[in-house]
Nucleic acid binder design. Structure first.
Lengths: 332, 332
DNA sequence: AACCGAATTGCAACCGGTTGCAAAATGATA
DNA sequence: TATCATTTTGCAACCGGTTGCAATTCGGTT
């Protein structure tokens, strides 16, 4: 139904190539020709079919945005930043919700069918192998919030979760807690494993501190609350490093409902610094993950890969910082 | 780089049409031919190029998902449900973040260039004219969470916001509050206007109740909190109907920080029933907007429009219900 | 006015598929 | 085995663009 190149060419009385050229920049067109074509195009309400042109140019400007985190409020911020970042560069996010899927095959196939120029995997829980499946299919991929596994096999942008775990441990140690624990996320998530490893590693330097840990079933309020209730029943630690902010908020509600005070009776430190952590009724001390930087860098990286698909894989890790609010007691 | 139809045809020693046919269902292919082709395809790792086929079929299975609500946590639920609903039907969501834009033009142009089969506008703040711009461009559109404006000009799925406002008013009246107010969202949002209108209309039936209202600058925690702080300073009402849940949560934090109790000193009722409203540390009494039903129905509607583009426009409105939690005093 | 190089234009093939139509193959029936 | 209706297959044109190459036009020189 919409006007095509041919329609415009006929109306302007020129060749189809001429029309095509006036709509692709860098092509050689005289001013007179351009005027004629643009007039005809305007009259017909013509705008070029991006998909048809992708056939010959090999570029669709489509970027697959793949995620399985549709229940953690921080991911709304993530999607906001990604979509804006991509749009600013003229790229279009094709959103893929993994929901229950853990195998990459069907996403890979689908995104290949749509000839996406690249893929961003935005997930802190998927293993590196997931992103590698895209690379193996010849699709440029960057894994945001992913795990750095030794030598990166695939582009990774995020934080060093092991270091984040250490940072949490140092923070708790510096505040003089004698019995600490990590209330970690689901055991299978890569981020959980790394954060826990760093936490334990750093805590090992403080033999005077009693350390334990347990896993919540998901990165969710409900899971954090449930796990904390169980911990309270069996005699809690003095302070908890929670696997992420939303877990912390669940834990916080359990602690308060048990009639205990935060931070006087139990201290909590989260990870992410999602917007909600700063809400006055939450006021969560947390480790800030610089998501703006991570996402900006991810977008830059995926753009760079469009020009240079075989770019040598790199890991871009950003430092985390502690954001002090009201859920840990002050340093002595 | 990936294998094409031609490659498969040559390898299988058959015509290109034969290959095409084995990959489009409903086409006539013998079992023997199918076997030959599938073997060759498997060997080459072939999968058909969806965009190329869209050129002739006129269908891309791409659906534009347009929204400007990337700061309200309920929209993460919305995106989750939409992406899954679309994916289940083999449709692909092309996400458009309106961020600051309020004009439809650039989105319309872009989505036309990508030949999307349809568009879902998911926004409670955009005016009907926004969705109409897609319809006028010949793109099937449904406006989810949109405003019903007299006779619907375009498919709308959502709630009757006027009725929701009445419902809130009835609820507050039934609980015997003598001075009530609406803490509404941004004045320009259609949902704000309708909810307020319904609220005032119903309250007019109760001349004994003192009614007032004010607007927050956005549907956000910060805006709700700020506005409530201002209201507290100038002598608050006994109960507030907040424009949505996230406003309520901001208001709630302001009330508590002022040393007042909820619901004893001030009552609050929100709207949406986002997941967070049920968190024990929030426990917000609210009007539930049935978003699963709305989204399921929106997806069904957009699918129906693919088959029947000129379908007569309809409004599908779902009833809201009050979810009683802990922020309104009990009925007398 | 004739000539030359550079800029502009059109031709035609191609991108990866689909599809109407006619030819070929198949199978059923006499 | 011949005949005919029904499937199955291939040919070739088309979807809406792009692009290499050759032909044309243009402006400037002599």
């Amino acid at each position: 139904m919409p006007a095509t190149l041919k329609d415009v060419a006929e109306r302007a009385g020129v060749s189809r190539s001429a029309v095509s050229r006036t709509f692709t920049d860098g092509a050689s067109v005289s001013a007179k020709m351009r005027r004629k074509v643009e007039k005809a195009a305007a009259e017909l309400g013509y705008s070029p079919n991006a998909l048809a042109s992708s056939l010959t140019t090999g570029r669709t400007k489509l970027i697959g945005l793949v995620s399985n985190n549709f229940h953690n409020p921080i991911f709304l911020e993530v999607f906001d930043l990604f979509t804006r970042g991509l749009q600013e560069r003229g790229l279009r996010p094709l959103l893929v919700n993994l929901s229950n899927e853990t195998e990459p095959d069907s996403s890979v196939r689908m995104l290949r069918q749509y000839s996406v120029d690249g893929v961003v995997v935005a997930s802190s829980t998927l293993p590196p192998a997931f992103a590698m499946a895209f690379r193996d299919a010849g699709i440029p991929v960057v894994h945001s919030f992913g795990r750095l596994s030794g030598a990166p096999q695939v582009h990774v942008v995020g934080i060093d979760n092991v270091e984040a775990g250490r940072l949490a441990a140092r923070e708790l140690a510096a505040r003089g807690y004698g019995r600490v624990a990590m209330l970690a996320g689901p055991e299978s998530a890569t981020s959980t494993q790394d954060r826990l490893a760093g936490f334990l590693e750093e805590m090992a330097l403080h033999p005077e501190i009693a350390v334990s840990h347990s896993f919540a079933s998901a990165y969710s309020f409900r899971a954090g609350r449930t796990e904390m209730q169980a911990l309270l029943a069996q005699g809690p630690a003095e302070a908890y490093f929670c696997g992420d902010d939303v877990l912390s908020i669940g834990a916080l509600s359990a602690v308060r409902d048990a009639g205990l005070r935060v931070p006087e009776d139990i201290g909590l430190i989260g990870l992410n610094d999602m917007e909600m952590a700063g809400w006055e009724n939450i006021d969560l001390t947390t480790i800030r993950q610089p998501i703006q930087q991570i996402i900006r860098s991810s977008v830059e990286l995926v753009v760079a890969m469009l020009a240079e698909p075989d770019r040598y894989p790199e890991a871009r890790l950003f430092p985390c910082t502690v954001v002090e609010r009201g859920t840990l007691r002050p340093r002595p």
